[in-house]
């Protein structure tokens, strides 16, 4: 399996950061970066990671199954995560979630028909002090309100038009 030169370089960088013989340490970062490129974790990717990190494909499957940020279904160009864990819930996270699903017409771990946006309801995103929080890819949006959320979605959808 070949990746873009950028992704490939990132992968090589990872290994150089771990002691020799600890290839398996790269399983998670490798899955993450490759997922960014492919938009999902494919069976082919699992086999590739297993081979490169010298573990069994089943061990890679275990990691993929455990981490909700690794997706076996196709994700949208923008993967939008809405936190509804306790801090965000108290600050209106649930309403944000309801609003988003209604506006986009999709639910948890689903993707819009045009493949632009996928949606996920997540547990604590680690930004409780600035709750409620919505994450677009790796980008955090704090103190979210329904208006700000709409602006975010507008800008995503406008970019494509």
């Amino acid at each position: 399996m070949t990746f873009t030169p950028e992704t490939e370089k990132r992968l090589q960088d990872i290994w150089s950061r771990y002691p020799a013989g600890r290839k398996r340490s790269a399983v998670i970062p490798m899955l993450m970066y490759a997922q960014d490129e492919l938009g999902m974790v494919t069976q082919e990717l699992i086999a590739e990671v297993a081979q490169r990190c010298e573990v069994s494909p089943l061990q890679v499957e275990e990691v993929v199954g455990y981490y909700s940020m690794l997706n076996k279904q196709k994700m949208g160009k923008h993967h939008v995560q809405v936190c509804t864990n306790i801090a965000c819930l108290l600050m209106g996270g649930e309403e944000l979630w309801q609003h988003t699903t209604k506006r986009l017409g999709i639910g948890h771990k689903q993707i819009t028909a045009d493949g632009l946006i996928s949606l996920e309801e997540v547990e604590c995103a680690g930004a409780c002090s600035w709750a409620p929080c919505v994450v677009d890819g790796y980008e955090y949006h704090h103190h979210m309100t329904i208006e700000k959320l709409d602006q975010l979605l507008d800008s995503i959808q406008k970019k494509v038009q």
Partner: peptide
């Protein structure tokens, strides 16, 4: 052999075959 693993998390965890 290593034919068994665990998949998913929390209450949904289960044993997975290779």
């Amino acid at each position: 052999v290593g034919a068994l693993g665990i998949t998913n998390r929390g209450v949904l965890s289960e044993i997975a075959p290779n």
